[in-house]
Design a protein around this nucleic acid. Structure first.
Lengths: 149, 149
DNA sequence: CGCAGACAGTTGCATATACAATTAAATCCG
DNA sequence: CGGATTTAATTGTATATGCAACTGTCTGCG
């Protein structure tokens, strides 16, 4: 077995990215499937929830919490605004484009909750208690969302 | 605190998808940054490695291993073929489009190895030993890639 | 043989994602 | 005040991803 072959085996057997990305695809699909009847995706529910927690959501702040590129958020917000789930709020600073969840967006969260639970249950079964705890720990390191924001 | 508010807090405080997706973005960026000098993305390295392990890679098999939609793989392979990293191999069954890593693709893996190590180190620091072990366990449940394939 | 159904992949379409470049506005400071 | 810098977000471009619909090929069966 030559050097290159052993490199291939090392990556195949240990790469964190390949495993995390695979798991992400599977889990995202669980939630997307559950939420599909509402025309809502997991990515959008993430944003909706963060915005709901913030009240007034400043894009830079949301991006920090979710570790999202600002350009990504910009377009996601635009799509969700088009659906009437978010609305942009005027601000003193003319550069800013803070937004908030509309009442329609709030009703959507309400309808989404049982669907979210369904996806969450499946994801829990996949990861187990320990997996969830570890995920939580890693996400906290990155300043991710938590109940107290 | 009304019912909807408590739903929002429940999701914000417990959602596996939001955490996993966040972690996935961060970790994917670590590898993408490390691999950027080679014009290679983490997603593509995944495919390259699986194909290298398989020798002759059948799209359906690769999709099963990586839990990827066939349409996603189809396009990724096309891009990588355009780079000269993969080549399609003729097959008895005219429906099939098996592919393999070219020698140029193999040289790319060689150059990518130290870059991969850099990303891997950072990801390890982020997840810790236990995190990695749990990730491995979850990925195995899904028939993900492992050293012996 | 010939056709119905299964199977392997691709194509159309939409969202998610990030980097680089850009626009516009606020702020700093001489 | 006014230009240089910083900040906030958007726009251009490219890849990644998945669902639905489609194309072509194979297979089984009467």
């Amino acid at each position: 077995m030559d050097r290159l072959t052993s490199h291939i085996d090392t990556i195949a057997g240990n790469c964190i990215a390949v495993r995390l990305r695979l798991l992400n695809r599977v889990v995202t699909n669980l939630y997307d499937d559950a939420l599909r009847p509402l025309g809502l995706k997991a990515s959008q529910l993430n944003i909706l929830i963060v915005a709901a927690k913030l009240g007034l959501a400043r894009p830079a702040k949301v991006c920090e919490i979710l570790q999202l590129d600002t350009s990504t958020l910009s377009r996601n917000v635009e799509r969700m605004r088009a659906q009437g789930w978010l609305e942009v709020v005027p601000d003193d600073d003319a550069r800013a484009q803070p937004f908030r969840v509309t009442s329609r967006g709030m009703r959507l969260i309400e309808k989404a909750f049982p669907k979210w639970e369904a996806g969450q249950r499946q994801a829990e079964a996949l990861l187990g208690e320990k997996g969830i705890a570890l995920l939580d720990k890693a996400a906290k390191k990155l300043g991710g969302p938590s109940a107290d924001r």
